[in-house]
Design a protein around this nucleic acid. Structure first.
Lengths: 262, 262
DNA sequence: TAGTGGTCTAGACCACTTC
DNA sequence: AAGTGGTCTAGACCACTAA
């Protein structure tokens, strides 16, 4: 027998998923459910807390608890890295949500800071550097409107970016064409990439930055970008609000019996 | 000011992440922390519950609360689909964790059921069928030892699999070579795939099946498999315990200005 | 001021494990 | 029987929002 708070949460969750409680609708007030015999205030509150952690509702003091509007997932495919976008055009390829949403980039939707820092073990391994070597870290917080969606921190080897716009700590994208354009102009044309991703609970500091409810998770993305000769020119770590993104990859079925497939 | 339970949880989380509280170590008993002035029993319990939802500890009645051993993430790359594995060898390609772990498949680590069901909207769309058409659903629960790691349900068009071993509801993988081998023998050689993935909170039924702590999340994977002429021969939905997997993809940077890149 | 959700307490009781 | 975590209650108090 599931606990009382879990049963209440499941009942409400089902009403939300079935559309009986549509996005924007207020849930019953906690004290009303107490009157209705759903349990004590703590019990009802536990159910509401669970729903919030599942991303189904948002609660706020003074207001109430409302069904969260399910913003459609942004679908991130590799088309967002299309060379034509950053090499020829005006657009900024590395803002993941731009391509997905089809919206033009607006100034102020991204803030960045550039620092020279010692490489953490993961960063050092990605770049093939000894741990503690200095690298440039370019950190951005990307928003969709007033809603932060993800953070993205790129790590560069100093010899690749020293003297370029990438190291200039001006807010906003790194000028026309973005970071890959800067690398291209410096003689490093990107050729292939590796993305690795996994989900984990948000640290409480991240929850604050990304405005996540307590208990929401994030997807961490590790992107390694190579030139044609295999040099790593960028290693980036993204932390994405898990409820707002989906990733898509297309590939050929490999066949190790016929030499190189991919 | 963060609430008391959050501060306690953060303090313990830091001790866990720093290694001061190594995996396997018992956390202080709730009633001891109450004596130590960390708050009431409910407050301390709230902190423990948060740690459990973050995947850091496991609690059990009668025993206590123990730091969870961080089983290394299984890294799933596209090499797990290598044709050589299922076409020529004895191995079973579609068991995601087999390749990743390097362990041989053992009977009983997978249970399956095959049913003929009406296609849900997502399944119908993937196969290009009208909603409600009948398809075969082959559902498996995959375990790593005694620990369930993910569920995987494949949907096939009846005309592709009718009369093959795939429709034979015998427990275990679909005979030597697995499902792709069966399709291959039936004249459908798989050629390319699309994987789409996103994270979401586990439904409470899934939490029970996968033995997840309340509040843990899952990663849902949608895999569409095509033959060379673009026919969809399999659409599969996987539900993975989020803490146990990472996905990796390698790809060329696309360039729409030079014709087909991928 | 009144109403909302959020925190915290003290204590009772339950489910489960070990001795 | 003793000890563990888990649930539930009744109530006090806090933080925040609205009229």
């Amino acid at each position: 027998m599931a606990p009382k708070w879990r049963e209440l949460a499941d009942k409400l969750a089902e009403q939300i998923k079935s559309g009986e409680l549509p996005p924007g609708r207020q849930l019953p007030h906690i004290r009303d459910l107490v009157k209705d015999g759903e349990g004590s205030k703590s019990t009802v509150h536990a159910a509401y807390k669970a729903l919030e952690a599942e991303g189904l509702v948002t609660s706020s003091r003074g207001h109430g608890t409302v069904v969260r509007s399910r913003a459609p997932l942004k679908r991130l495919g590799i088309a967002r890295y299309d060379k034509a976008k950053w090499r020829d055009g005006e657009e900024v390829a590395f803002i993941a949500d731009r391509v997905a949403s089809g919206r033009a980039h607006k100034r102020g939707e991204q803030t960045q800071s550039v620092r020279r820092v010692p490489a953490t073990p993961i960063v050092a391994a990605a770049h093939g550097l000894p741990e503690g070597s200095e690298v440039y870290a370019r950190a951005r917080l990307v928003r969709e409107g007033d809603q932060p969606t993800h953070t993205l921190t790129s790590y560069y080897r100093p010899e690749h970016v020293e003297g370029t716009r990438l190291v200039d700590p001006t807010p906003g994208p790194a000028g026309k064409g973005g970071g890959y354009r800067v690398l291209y102009d410096a003689g490093y044309e990107i050729d292939h990439m590796r993305e690795e991703l996994f989900a984990r609970a948000a640290a409480s500091e991240e929850a604050a930055i990304l405005q996540l409810a307590p208990g929401e998770w994030v997807v961490e993305l590790h992107r390694t970008t190579y030139t044609a000769d295999g040099t790593v020119v960028e290693f980036a770590i993204g932390v994405h609000a898990a409820t707002r993104f989906a990733w898509a990859y297309d590939f050929k079925v490999p066949d190790s019996a016929e030499g190189e497939t991919q």
